Simulated assay, not measured.
Amino acid sequence: MRRDAGVPSYANNIFVSAGLQKALMVVVKLLASGEGETQTGVLTPIPCPHTLPMLLDEAGVMLVPYQLREDRGWAVDLEELHRALKTARGRCKPRAIYISNPGNPTGHVQDRNSIEEVIQFAAAERLFLLVDEVHQDSVYGQSKEFISYKKVLFEMGKEYSETVELVSLNSLSSACMGECGLRAGYMEVVNMDPDVMLFVDTMLCGDISTPVTGQLALDLMVNPPKPGDPSCDTYTQEILLRRATLSQNAKRAQEFLNGLPGMSCQPVMGGIYLYPRLRLLSEITEQAKVLEVEADVLYCQKLLEEEGVFVGAGCQHGGTTGNHHLRFCILVPPHTLEEALDRLGSFHRRLWADSCTLTKV
């Protein structure tokens, strides 16, 4: 309620889980049904969190890809949503749309108008909104702010606030605290049928419970020390330092990557990743075909073997652009980032020079 300027929340609508994936799996399994043309489909952004396609497959639902607009900083495009939905019908039964805001791994932060468009689309098409908001505390783009889907939904009037079904997900591991190993997150459900909520509660309780240490850290994340508390100054200084470091890392890495031949990176507004586009010359793409792997996967394997730097491949999971991308995490100390960039740059320039030499020969 503090975050959303007084929009009401109710304890019975909030479920703590052993991480975001556990909570999301419960909801997706409740949506899953049918086979063939009646199989549940979930509209999924491309690019998306790397674990999402596997989760949807395990839950038995079909991934329905919609392409984010790279030329607009990885924005959600309403026309693309309609295209994806129209294409999916006849192959499956779309019942939900997954949104990541701030974007994972793109770093895009939606503005109010974009959020309203998605809510109106979901309402018109009777789609369940699955909103991943785990990077909400990591927004650093100039003149950008995080606005929750729930806040916008309740400001759009009863036509939407009393009808659109929404689940908002948050997690300890992707916030400024970054405590991945503690495995704790939560979700807030809006407008879900009370009878269905009983199954949510049962499925979460029947699985592995959230670790006590994770619950303690989660409580600290959502209810931090207040002015006058003994630890308030220390906590505030550490959080501000983390956010400043994240912002500086994003700017530094973006400038560096844009300076490499064949690489370009959209401005990042929030989150812990950069998602640069990678143009590869024919030598590595041909080698990838022989090895039967994606070219960006081969690039990442070579980078790890030769320089000891681990970068994620940006496999598009149903995307049709034919472009290659990398997932580059910036939630690291500045000196670690500099070493990683230096090794990445050395590897990339060497690979590029070798490819150009072979092309000339």
Rank of each mutant, 00 (worst) to 15 (best):
Q142F: 10
D137Y: 07
E159A: 07
L129D: 06
V134F: 05
I147S: 03
Y160G: 00
Y160Q: 01
V139S: 14
E133H: 08
E159W: 00
G157K: 09
Q136P: 06
E125Q: 12
L153R: 00
V152G: 03
Q136W: 12
R126V: 06
E145M: 11
E155M: 00
G141I: 14
E133F: 04
A124F: 13
V131E: 04
K151P: 06
V131N: 05
L127M: 04
E133N: 02
F154K: 09
L153A: 04
S138M: 14
K150R: 12
E145P: 07
A122V: 15
F121P: 10
Q120C: 15
Q142K: 11
E145T: 13
F146L: 10
A124S: 08
L127D: 03
H135M: 09
S143H: 13
E133Q: 13
F154L: 03
K151Y: 01
H135N: 05
Y149H: 05
F121L: 12
E125L: 11
S143T: 12
K151V: 01
F154Q: 05
S161V: 09
L129E: 05
K150P: 01
G157M: 04
K144A: 14
E145D: 13
A123H: 14
V152L: 00
F121M: 12
Q120R: 15
Q142I: 11
V134D: 07
E125T: 04
D137N: 12
K151L: 02
H135C: 05
S161W: 08
M156L: 12
R126A: 07
E125K: 11
K144R: 15
F154T: 12
E133W: 02
I147W: 02
S138K: 13
Q142N: 10
